[in-house]
Amino acid sequence: MSAHAAELAVHEHKDYTGAKIGMWMFLFTEVLLFGGLFLLYAVYRAEYPQGFHQGGLHLDVFLGAINTIILLTSSLTMALSIAAIQRGQKGLAIFFLSFTILCGATFMVNKYFEWSKKIHHKIYPGSEALAKYVDNMVEEGKVPPQQKSGVLLFFSLYYLMTGLHGLHVLVGMIAMAFILRKLLKQPFVHHRWNPFQKQELQGCRLVLEDPNGQTIWKSETFDETVKHVDVEFQYYPAPKHVHPDDYVALENTGLYWHLVDLIWIFLFPLFYLIS
C-alpha cells in the first residue's frame, strides 16, 4: 500500500496543455488591456475624424511600414525557432531566436528615432508648442475649431498606445533572452523530490525503472533507522539534448511575441495610414 503511494508521489506531473491554457489566458488579459485603449481610440476617432486625420499627417508612413515588416519577420523567425526545436534542431532554434531578439532591438531603435524626432519638434502631449501649433491649424482652416481636440487626443493616444506597445516589445525581448540563456546552457535536467513520509517508507525500497519496466537501479530496503529520503538526480534528455520543458517555455514566449506583433498589425493602419 505505502509503496504504491510513494510511487504515485514520484510520478511527476508536467502539464503542457495546462501551461498553454494559462499563457493564452494571460494573452487575453493583454488583449483587453490594449482593448481599453482601442476603445478610447474608437470613440475619439469617430468623434474627431478630421482632427485625427491632421494628426496622422505627422507620422512617417515609411518608418511605420519598415517597423511592420521587421515585426512580421520577427514573428516568422520566432515560429521557425519553435519549429526547429520541435524537430530537435537546437542550433537552428538558437539562431532563429537570436535573430528574433535582434529584430525586436531594431524595432525599438527605429521607434527611438521616431519619438525623439517628434519630441524634438515639441510634438508631445501637454506641450504648449503643440497647443499653439494646433491653434494655428485652426486659423489656417486645416481643422474646424470643434475638431481641435481631436489632434491633441490623437497625439495622446499615439504616445500611449505605441509606448505601451514598445514596453511589451521590451518585455518580450527580455523573456526571449531568458529562454536563449536556458537553451545555451548545459542541457541536463535536474530533479529533486522529498515527498515521502517516514511511515510510508518502512520496509520499502526506491527503484528506478526505464519505460519498459526494466530495473536500472534500486536502493537498500528502508528500516526504522532511516530518518528521511531525498531523491535527486540529473540526466541528459533525448533527443539531441532538447527537453520538452524547453519548448513549452519557448512556445509560450513565442505566443507572447506574436501577440505583440498582432497589436502592431492594428496600430500601424490606425495611426500611420489615416492621413
Binding site: 487575453f28 483587453l32 482593448g35 481599453g36 478610447l40 506641450s127
Partner: peptide, 25 residues
C-alpha cells in the same frame, strides 16, 4: 476576473499618465 480586470488596469494607468505625462484622455 480575466476579461474585466485588464480594462480597469489600463484605466488606472491612464489616470497616472494624465497626472504625470501630460496626456489628456
Amino acid at each position: 476576473q480575466i476579461l474585466a480586470t485588464p480594462v480597469v488596469g489600463i484605466t488606472l494607468l491612464l489616470v497616472i499618465a494624465e497626472r504625470f505625462l501630460g496626456v489628456g484622455v
